[in-house]
Simulated scan of single mutants.
Amino acid sequence: MTKVELYKSRVFVTIIHLCALGQFAYGLYYSSFEIQRSYKLKTSPNRRLVPESLPQKIKLLSYWSLIIQALYYIVSLVNDFVGTNELTPKKPPAVRRFKDWLMATLAFPVAINVGVTFWTLYAIDRELVFPKVLDPVFPSWLNHVLHTNIVVFIVLELFISYRSYPKRSQGLAGLAIFMGAYLVWIHVVKHYSGVWVYPVLEVLHLPQRILFFAAVVGFTLSLYLLGEFLNNTVWAKEVKLAKRKAN
C-alpha cells in the first residue's frame, strides 16, 4: 500500500492518531501520577532524581514535547472527524489550519530535537541525561515513549498526512519563541534551585554552555526547515495532481 492509498484511507489515519494519542496520553498520566506510587521508587535512595511534582516535570523539554504530541494528536482526531484531510482544500477549517501550524512549528521539530539530542548524549555518556541508577525506578517503556516513540509517530505522520506550512518567517519565529522561552525558563530554575535541569550543563563552563545553547536552538530551527523540505518532497506529486483536478 502506497502513501497515497494510506492517505485516502481515513480509517487508517484515524487509527494511527488514536494509537499515538492513547500512548502519549497514558505516558503523561503515568509520569504524572503512577510513577510516584511505585514501591521501587518510594524505597529507592535515588528517588530525588525522578521529578515528582508538576513544577519539577515542566523543567524538562521531554515533558513539554510529550504535552505537544498529545495536543497535536487530539487536534488531529478532531480534524479527522469534523475537519478535512484533503491535500489542498479551498477553505480549510480552523482546526485544519491549527493542526498544520502545530505540526510544522512545534510537533515535528521539537520531537526530533528531543529524540536526537537525548539518544546522542546517551550514546556519548548516559550519565549526562539518564543515569543508570534510574533504571530500577524509571520504566524503560516510559523512557522510549518520551524519547523514541515521539520520533517514530511524528515521522509516520509525515507520510500519512499532508500539511500546508505557514510562511517560513512566521513558522521559524514561533519555534524560536518557544525555544527561547524554554531556555529562559531553565535559567530561572537554575537561579532559584541552584541546580541545572540537565546534568550535562553542570560539566560545561559558561562559554561552552553558550555554544551548547546556540547549537541546540540552531539545530531545532534547522529541523523546521527539514520538516518543510520533507513534506514538500514526499507530497510533491500528489499536491500537483490535486491542484490540476481543482482547476
Rank of each mutant, 00 (worst) to 15 (best):
P109H: 10
K190Y: 14
T120W: 11
V129H: 09
V200N: 10
D80Q: 12
P139N: 09
T120Y: 11
L18H: 00
H191Q: 15
L221H: 11
V152S: 05
N149W: 15
L230G: 03
K237G: 08
S161R: 14
I154W: 06
V95L: 14
T117S: 14
V145K: 04
V133L: 07
K245V: 08
E52Q: 15
M179L: 12
I16T: 08
T88C: 07
F219H: 11
G194P: 04
K167P: 06
Y39W: 11
T88E: 02
S9H: 13
E202K: 15
D125R: 06
T2F: 11
V195E: 13
Y165G: 13
F159G: 07
N247K: 12
A236I: 09
V95M: 14
H144S: 08
S161C: 13
N149I: 09
K3H: 15
G174L: 11
F24Q: 05
L87A: 05
V50K: 03
I210R: 12
G27L: 01
I68T: 13
S53P: 00
F81K: 02
A181P: 00
V13I: 12
E34A: 11
T2N: 15
N247V: 08
F108Q: 11
I210C: 13
P131S: 09
S140C: 06
V200D: 06
K237A: 15
I58K: 02
I124C: 07
L201K: 02
Q56R: 13
L77A: 04
V234H: 10
M179D: 10
H187A: 08
D100G: 01
R163Y: 11
I74L: 15
T2Q: 12
L241T: 11
I16N: 05
F24S: 03
E86R: 08
V216A: 15
S53F: 06
S31P: 00
V239M: 01
R97A: 11
P92F: 07
P92E: 07
N149V: 09
L225N: 13
Q208C: 06
R209C: 06
A236G: 08
L21A: 03
V133G: 05
A123Q: 10
V133S: 14
L223E: 05
S38I: 02
Q23E: 09
